[in-house]
Structure formats: C-alpha cells, structure tokens
Design a protein around this nucleic acid. Structure first.
Lengths: 251, 251
DNA sequence: GCGATTTATTTACGAACGAAACCAATTGTG
DNA sequence: CACAATTGGTTTCGTTCGTAAATAAATCGC
C-alpha cells in the first residue's frame, strides 16, 4: 500500500471519526477490496478500528490517535532512537506517541531493557515483549491520555536515577525552547528530567512549527533531539548552538 | 437472550478460544442470526471479541476473561457492594474481576468516589465516568494481569489510609481462611489491607469450593464478604463464627 | 383465563467480508 | 536487453454480515 494513500485514509478516518468503505473507495479512486486490505493493515498497526462496513478512529487524545499522524516518520525516529539504548540499560520514557514506538522497537530488538514510565498505554503496548521490564510510576490517573501525574508520581521518582530520559514535545520556539500543552504532564516530565543524566527528545518535525502553551525545557537542557529532515533551518541552527546533538532521519 | 444460553456461549468460546458462528448455532440449536445477536451483546459487555465469522476470547488471565465467568452473579454482587460506599468516600480496590464491576457500578451511580487501585484494567474500565477519581499505585507491571506489584507498590501505599478495601479471592478453606494464587499479588493485597480499616471480600460462591496456593487472610481479618447464595453451609458458618458480616445476594 | 404487549427467534435479502486467482506495472539480476 | 520476482491493484466467488419483517413464546393487566 502506498504511504500516501495510507495517510489519506487515516486523515479521512480521523476527520470523520467513522467512515464507510464505500466512501473511502470512492474518494481515493480504488476498489473496495483494496480499501479493505488497507484497513486491515492499518488495524494491525493499531491505528484504527474496523467494523462491518466502516472504520472508526480510536478515542482521540488517546495515543492510538496521535500515533496515526505521521506514523512512518515516527517509526523511523523510534528506530534510530532505539540504537541509543544499550543492553540491560534502564531508561525512563514519557508518554509521547513516538516514545511508545521507541518502546516497541526496543522490544523487537530483543535486548533486555528496563523501562520506567508514566504511561499505561506504553506498558500495555509492549506487553508481548518478555525482554522488557516495565516499572510504572503511581499517581493520579488521567484517563484520556492514560498517564499518571501529580505529586504522588513525582514522589515515586525519588526511587530512580537513570542515564537517559526519552520524551516527546508539543511545540518548539527557537527563542525560548520546548513546550507542552498539558500542565500536569509537563510538570511530571520536568521532575523526571531531574532524575536523568541525559534528556532526549523524540519528535517529528511538524512540532517545530507548532507553538504550544507551557514551556517545558530550554534548549540547552536537552542532550539529543531525534527528528526528521523537515525541521526548519532556524530551529536546527538554534539547537546546535545550544549544544544539542541533533539527529535527523531521512524523510 | 436467556442467561443460560449466554453462559453456554461463553463456556464454548472460553474452551475453544475461537469458535465460529455456525458451530455455535449448531450446538445450541438456534439460528445463526440469533447467535450473532447474542455475540453482539456479549461483545458490548466486553466479554468476548467478534471477528468476521467467529468469536474469540480475550487473553485468558486477563480480567476480561475472568469477567466472563458467572457474569450475572458478579454483577449482582458488585451492585450490592456499591451500596456500601458513601459519596465522596475514598476506597481501595484490588484487581479482581468482581472488583472491576464494583468500580463500574460506582461510576454508574454517579456519586463522587476516589478509588485507589493497583489495576490498570480497572482504571481504564471506568474511564467514561467523570465522577470517579482514580489513583494508581506504581510498581513492577505484570502485563498479563495488568496490575502493579512489588516493593515499589508497597512503598507507595504509605501515602494512603482508607476506610474500606475491596478485594476478590481465589479460594477459601474453612479451617485456614482465604487464598490467592499469585504470590506477588497476594503480597501487595496484604500490604493494602494494613492501610485499610475494613477488609471486604467480593466473590462469587464458586471460590468457596476452590482450593488455592497462598494464604492471604484468616477469616477473622475480614470485615464483610459479599457473595451469592451458593456458598456451602460449612463456609458460611465459619465466617459468621469469625465475626464476618456475610452478605448473600440472590442466585 | 384471556387478550395485549413484550421478548425471543426465525426467515429473507442486499451489502460487506476474506481468500484466491488474475492482471498490470516496477524492480532487480544475469 | 530479457525475464524472473515483487508490488499494487482488481475481479470473482462462496460465506458472513446486519437489518427488517414475520412468527412464536412468555409475561402482564385485569
């Protein structure tokens, strides 16, 4: 299946929440059989749900939804990031969609890694990989994003000190740094960063155009950014001036 | 749909892991259309999954699987237990299937309750009820049962002290008390009990016949047992002699 | 005890399904 | 350049799907 049709399908499904096979076949000028095959593959990737006659999107706000956007780019970023993790290392992972793919990649590579995370989605996402040990922080459960936050989660962090923390971002401003859009999640991520030697950000380049609400980190706090080649030059220049290791995977 | 056919379908699906509509219609002497309607309802309850042509059971060990056994009895037990919880109360809930239904009942009653649990399944199960606040303990994640266990989870308990704890059980022996079948889960449940004034057990009566491996609690530690009327008289006598409040819902 | 209503089931039918055979285009290899 | 192998797509076929209308059984009110 060509990637651009997959993207279009996801776009249409996301927009409509629910759309039937006939409509998709119509809009994309292919047969229904082809659409059905596409949908089966996308369902296998966990990007949507199929029902008899139509497809529907998983609860937005949910990671499954966010995963659907720029899936292939995120997958390549995650594959690259997985190389940064050593056998038997213990890492922290935040709740971003690209972070979830990183965890899955580590699972596929079949090297033993211990993961500490605030995301129950990620914990479940990697269920089938016995080489991954997962520790979850406790705290107030945000059911829409499937993460724990709040003072209890921060307190639980006291038990851990790791080499690397992997997070996503919701936005970036060349002058002021990285941003989040949920104050509780931003808060816990900042606390995680205090217990990690290296802060690594995984994000597709679209976030470098997007402004957001709450500043999470200034650029000089960040050790490595893994993104794709679509990042604006103004951003990449700032990052490198701030001493950030910038890794760009091919678009 | 008559309850007994529903039970038979679940039985057959559980035994076979996967069974097609034609076979079900054959064995239960009803039309395929009727089977399909039944399956749709059972899927809505979350007790199985439908695919094109057949039904399959959710990962055993998983709560969805255990929920499927004696569903109606468990629901009545949960409904009764829900009456024991006051508005704005904070309770602890362990990971049993009947406990999950209790949480859902509390959600439906639309009274505000704060729930502290070790079960990600329960946290997600009640996602749609805004009147429930859920706090999850942190710890090592057991992906098959979707709970957190271990020393970290026990340490997190230090922050909480509640009036009521609701748990399930895997077995009961009149002479020695209640039993579990997973040492890690039994361990964390015992720790939870130390931080709760009243220990309440929710279980269908089948468990009173079933022996299990690890003793969790002697009968006199238990405040209330909610079960159905199928409990052996020897057991009910012992419980009452031990000062347990025994509540039996109609079978 | 008996019509009225509800609930359970079946029959009938057009739409949707998965699997397999088939038909290009594209790619890689000698 | 030829010609296998791969990939993306369609057509066809027998089966399963959900819905609606028809029928049978159970329940209720009086």
């Amino acid at each position: 299946m060509p990637n651009d049709r997959a993207d279009k399908i996801l776009q249409l499904v996301n927009d409509a929440k629910k759309i039937d096979v006939t409509q998709l076949a119509d809009k994309l000028h292919v047969s229904k059989v082809t659409i059905r095959k596409d949908l089966t593959k996308l369902e296998d990737k966990g990007l949507l749900q199929r029902k008899h006659g139509f497809a529907l999107i998983n609860n937005p706000n949910n990671l499954s939804y966010r995963l659907a956007q720029n899936y292939d780019t995120k997958l390549r970023i995650a594959q690259r990031a997985a190389q940064m993790v050593a056998v038997d290392e213990t890492i922290m992972i935040e709740s971003g969609s690209t972070c979830a793919l990183l965890a899955a990649q580590l699972g596929k590579l079949d090297k033993h890694v211990t993961i500490i995370t605030i995301s129950y989605f990620i914990a479940n996402f990697v269920e089938r990989y016995p080489n991954l040990d997962v520790f979850l922080l406790g705290g107030k459960y945000q059911s829409d994003s499937q993460v724990v936050v709040g003072p209890m989660a921060k307190a639980a962090l006291a038990n851990f000190r790791v080499g690397q923390l992997f997070i996503g971002t919701d936005g970036f401003d060349p002058n002021t740094g990285f941003y989040g859009n949920d104050i509780m999640r931003t808060d816990i991520v900042q606390a995680m960063a205090q217990n990690a030697q290296a802060l690594n950000i995984l994000t597709d380049s679209s976030k470098f155009a997007a402004p957001s609400i709450i500043r999470s980190f200034t650029a000089d706090r960040v050790h490595t950014v893994v993104t794709d080649s679509g990042i604006p030059q103004a951003c990449s220049r700032v990052l490198q001036q701030s001493g950030v290791q910038l890794i760009q995977v091919d678009a």
